[in-house]
Amino acid sequence: MVLLRIRERPGRPVLTSMLGLGVLLCAAGGLGGQNTAEEIVDRVDRMMRGESSRGRVEMEIVTQHWTRSMVMEISSLGTEHALIRIASPRKDAGTTTLKSGNEIWNYLPRVDRTIKLPSSLMGSAWMGSHFTNDDLVKEHRLIEDYDIEISFEGSRDGVDVWEFRLKPRPEAAVIWDRISYQVRKSDLMPVWARFYDERDDLIRTIEWSEYDRSSGRLVPMLMTIEPADKPGESTTVRYTDLAFDVPLTEADFSLRTLRSPP
């Protein structure tokens, strides 16, 4: 008896690494054009470590049955720590998610309780969005899990781009069988990423847009995720406020701060 439906295909990019990828790739902008795809991503990946950020995000979720908007405050430290607090709507306000390493904790203000998410639910949707809990937990270590090569280099719709093809390494514990990324050559801004399963069926697409400067960095302020099997459904995330290199320590990502955010 299937009483509980769990999403079967957890995805990869994280709310935090969503900005991560943007930062990664634009930080690599200073690299010379002669670098291999792997070197670019590796350089970018290492530059991401130790970064901290704080931002405010509007998330709009559109499903077949309902549409809702949420405002969230997000802070992150490196790839291991993230804290996401819902500011609105009122019904969910104060609900907070803490990512610490591979664990996810939720604080529910209505009942004033903190619960740790069981690993069996890592693949299920986070806050009703098209992100999974797994998306939050998995680090964005593309270089470790994937063999990366340039599959296309040239002009698409008048814009010079690279397209990377990522294939998981045999030992990598990842869900996707293939990821394609398109990145603008001029400023190394990501344009889209497509995620495929082992049958090479497209599962979901992420698109980035509205590139803007924040704390001196060019980043995509808007990201849209669309599941391929549910046409018309999407989750859109828009940064309304974003700051990098803010003073945050690991103490800001403890169970105590989960219950009473600063």
């Binding site: 049955h65 309902w66 809702r68 709507p89 609900t95 529910l108």
Partner: peptide, 16 residues
């Protein structure tokens, strides 16, 4: 115990 259930309106139902 705490019971948490995704609600039909997309919110996260939770109660004691």
């Amino acid at each position: 115990v705490v019971v948490v259930a995704p609600a039909a309106d997309g919110s996260l139902g939770n109660d004691l």
